[in-house]
Design a binder for these strands. Structure first.
Lengths: 142, 142
DNA sequence: CTAGAAGCTAGACCGCTGTCTAGGTCAACC
DNA sequence: GGTTGACCTAGACAGCGGTCTAGCTTCTAG
């Protein structure tokens, strides 16, 4: 039932280093138990929690904020409003990121399309606008 | 017609420090010209290029890669295939990010919903599952 | 019994992306 | 002519998020 740090590393994709680091940083809701020999014993809950942390991280939540959230959860019930606010604020943040990223995607896709067209329509003939400026003339003028 | 570093900072949202840093890092396609007194004079093209760099950066392209792309553009025509590959590779990267971010959004929205419901349905009564575990039981079990 | 794999702690180090400081120039205004 | 503000360079420093090392212990298999 208990998992070693290596097993948790494998499951979560984090390195054992990162796992110890996260623990030091107070990102784990439950204190990790130890075997008599001092080795960490993780539970399935820990893995679940870590997966959530990874999602938070990968969506740009700083470790600091994850720690805050963890602290709230650790304090037990009564602060659900605070947790909600934290989550909502991050949600907004992610929404912004999504919008930004979609815009980037649009621009890059446009550039890719233009270059592709250029390459498709014969190689050596420079119908491409010449130097000195606009040598990357995939800019936005549709 | 020429823009000072301060003006460019204002337009792009980058700091003057960052602008000088980007230049040192070779992220500018055209060499920035100088006034007789040594001050930088930017063109509208520079601003456009910087906007693109900002989009690349904000979608996670490392400065290193932007530099590579810049180098290709600086070298002039003939390497469009390489540029395209670089762009495509980044495009894939962004697509992955988008998917990840959307998944994060899903999870966070779920959590927000659960907390909201909890808070809506009366405050003090703990129909919430108690300690010691699952104190943040917004996990994925719909 | 020994080798190798896995774990432990404390703390140094790293890559990235800026940011800021020190020390100075230059132009404009009161 | 003094102050203010924008600019210059070179280089030190900072924050984040790990990553790795040194030096040690502890299990497991052969």
């Amino acid at each position: 039932m208990g998992l070693s740090i290596g097993q948790v590393a494998e499951r979560t994709g984090l390195s054992v280093h990162a796992l110890r680091f996260y623990e030091r940083e107070g990102l784990l809701a439950d204190q990790v138990r130890r075997e008599s020999n001092g080795r960490r014993v993780y539970t399935e809950d820990d893995v679940e929690w870590l997966d959530m942390c990874i999602k938070f991280r990968s969506s740009g939540m700083p470790l600091d904020t994850i720690r805050k959230y963890t602290d709230l959860v650790r304090q037990g019930s009564g602060n659900e409003q605070e947790r909600l606010e934290l989550l909502r604020s991050h949600q907004e943040h992610v929404a912004t990121q999504l919008a930004d990223l979609q815009e980037c995607m649009r621009v890059i896709t446009h550039k890719v399309t233009v270059y592709q067209q250029h390459l498709d329509s014969g190689d050596a003939d420079c119908l491409w606008s010449g130097p000195p400026v606009a040598r990357d003339n995939t800019s936005e003028a549709s």
